[in-house]
Design a binder for these strands. Structure first.
Lengths: 201, 201
DNA sequence: AAAGGTTATTGAACGCCGTTCATATATTTG
DNA sequence: CAAATATATGAACGGCGTTCAATAACCTTT
């Protein structure tokens, strides 16, 4: 009867992760509390630090799940529009991104609101997971701009994502004043469609 | 010999504001501490709360100064390029925005990193100050797209700013990996120039 | 100029936070 | 079953923004 330690450890890890996922989705990253998580899963406060380095480590794993869900959504959009013209594919991707942000506002915001403490770096394994944000942009982009070097292609894909993210992010934020979703959608169409049109010419 | 109270009050307000400006510029919003500010200006910890509602109120006033400086920079860029074609004016504005962000990374980041506590709303006077972000975009945009209604024009100007902000923000962030400034500049030229080109057609 | 009323200043104390660590408990190994 | 090893516990720590009763400064009135 061996391996019971590891099993309990994994269960605790997973319980804490699920609790954090739900709390972030419900209340946002800013209201995540170590004591609430411990209460949720019925463990002592200190137990959290046996299975995660700290709260930031736990948040990284929540964000990892969010990125996977977002990646799946973008993959679906890319597949559905694979027969469309490159410009329309790019617009469809941006709309899918907007849809995800609207459907999962707190989890999505946590991806960008979270900051590593002090001098700590985001670990490599999590950095690489961000590729899902750019990867589907690359294919229609290279059709549109065949002369782009691989480096410039990656850079441009990243830039396009950044532009879309800016429009979605500031549009949904109540910072200035919230913009109706349809207006954000139109703006994405105008911006990305316009870019594609001029790039193709 | 009257008015000494108000004079001291104003001096304390201004000293705290200047201290906060410098600390945010030097260390970033995340490391701003009420106790550090009190030490800087040589007042008691509680004195801060006589002249500002709380730390967030103080940060709002710091951001107000930053927005004024940014507005001045954008105004200069708009005036310098007033004779250029609308597309080039828009690109010049985006480059000026990038330059400001690079020159004042922490103060600029504080504009967007700061979040009001709990249910508190950003006060009207500060909301209105954000107009400087969009105002200079509107003129070249209406030349470029004369058929835009005032509402759609404002919305599109805001969207363009959001896109530029996204490119600059994610580009400068060390989140994924920092992008060289010249690449960000090229991306802005490509994006905004492309948008303008297709809008004019 | 002195007294009385009003406002500002002070800093110890409060409540909340993430994190730690000696101690108690559970699991594995010999 | 006992010794060795790893985990679980929750009180305690240090740091944070904020409060508040007591003290000091200022203004007004006489």
């Amino acid at each position: 009867m061996t391996g019971k330690r590891e099993a309990k450890r994994q269960k605790l890890r997973d319980d804490l992760l699920q609790s954090a996922v739900q709390r972030i989705a419900a209340d946002g990253l800013g209201k995540l509390r170590a004591r609430d998580l411990a209460t949720d899963v019925g463990c002592a406060l200190g137990a959290l630090y046996n299975v995660f380095a700290d709260i930031d480590d736990l948040v990284l794993h929540v964000n990892s799940l969010t990125l996977q869900a977002l990646g799946a959504k973008l993959s679906r959009a890319a597949q559905d529009g694979a027969v469309a013209r490159p410009a329309d594919q790019l617009v469809a991707l941006s709309h899918a991104y907007l849809d995800f942000a609207i459907a999962n506002p707190n989890s999505w915001a946590a991806l960008f609101d979270h900051q590593m403490p002090e001098g700590a770096q985001v670990p490599e394994w999590h950095l690489n997971e961000h590729a899902v944000l750019f990867i589907h942009i690359l294919e229609p982009l290279t059709v549109l701009m065949p002369n782009l070097s691989p480096e410039d292609g990656a850079m441009t894909a990243r830039g396009l994502f950044s532009a879309v993210h800016g429009v979605v992010s500031l549009g949904l934020q109540h910072r200035f004043s919230a913009v109706p979703a349809d207006n954000i959608r139109s703006m994405l169409t105008l911006l990305i469609g316009g870019f594609a049109k001029s790039a193709a010419a």
